[in-house]
Design a protein around this nucleic acid. Structure first.
Lengths: 129, 129
DNA sequence: GGTTGCCTTGACGCCGGTGTCAAGGCCTAG
DNA sequence: CTAGGCCTTGACACCGGCGTCAAGGCAACC
């Protein structure tokens, strides 16, 4: 499988695949032409990468998952190193959730306050020109 | 008030204040030396900016709030334009919250699955060297 | 006069995952 | 022979809010 086909099948671009290879995540053989030749298994790897990236993982975080897949596992997240990353990421996400929730409350409060002021009989706000 | 003092009082750096000025958010007069001279009111403006940035707003989003403050309002979020931005941001934040919540569920599920596999009598995972 | 500490503008670096363009090689079909 | 479609490496652009260094002016004190 050439790079264009893999890109299409994985729903991404050739540029992206070359980047993953540069980062040591994806492996490719070479044809006599110098064209990259991909094993069918790489499709799973690329999909795993894309899925993890979409979930907010960074390239470094993804390495153990790929290694886990390459070791012959059905899924990339069953190995100890992957589990560590999963735990860390879960804690991170919980942190973000907490912050976002606080921010949401603040926004809600400010919005309510602004609306209340606008609807009050005495309109106090002065707007820019 | 010179830039260093404002920076200290606002809890930020001179670089940051110059950047805000470059973005048209903060205003400064000039001494005969060419030194920036700040009005006391700018401290409030800078604090408003910092607070909004911390809440995830971008520079562009912040403009209406500053304009609102400059128009003489007690708070920057009572003007119509600010309210629009607040509404938009609230929706955005809700979107992020939804996504993060989904991701959290996925992480949780994958983590639980991995742990279950590890603790099962039949250890199926094969780990990388 | 020299040192210290403020100020000035200008400009590059970062982070991370791509888009995109350049310049060229390989292969196939007309 | 040529046109077109695949491939190659290399390298710059992006986004946003600064950090940080460079080179120099101004003010005040010893």
């Amino acid at each position: 499988m050439l790079i264009g086909e893999l890109a299409t099948r994985a729903g991404t671009s050739t540029r992206t695949l070359r980047y993953y290879e540069e980062q040591g995540l994806v492996r490719a053989g070479r044809d006599a032409n110098g064209y990259r030749q991909y094993d069918d298994a790489e499709l799973r790897v690329v999909r795993e990468i894309r899925s993890l990236l979409a979930a907010g993982f960074g390239i470094e975080d993804i390495r153990p998952f790929v290694a886990c897949l390459r070791a012959g596992n059905e899924s990339g997240h069953v190995c100890p190193d992957s589990v560590l990353v999963l735990r860390r990421k879960l804690a991170e996400v919980d942190g973000y959730l907490g912050q976002l929730t606080d921010i949401r409350h603040q926004l809600r409060a400010q919005l309510d306050e602004a609306v209340a002021l606008r609807e009050s009989p005495c309109r106090t706000q002065i707007c820019p020109p």
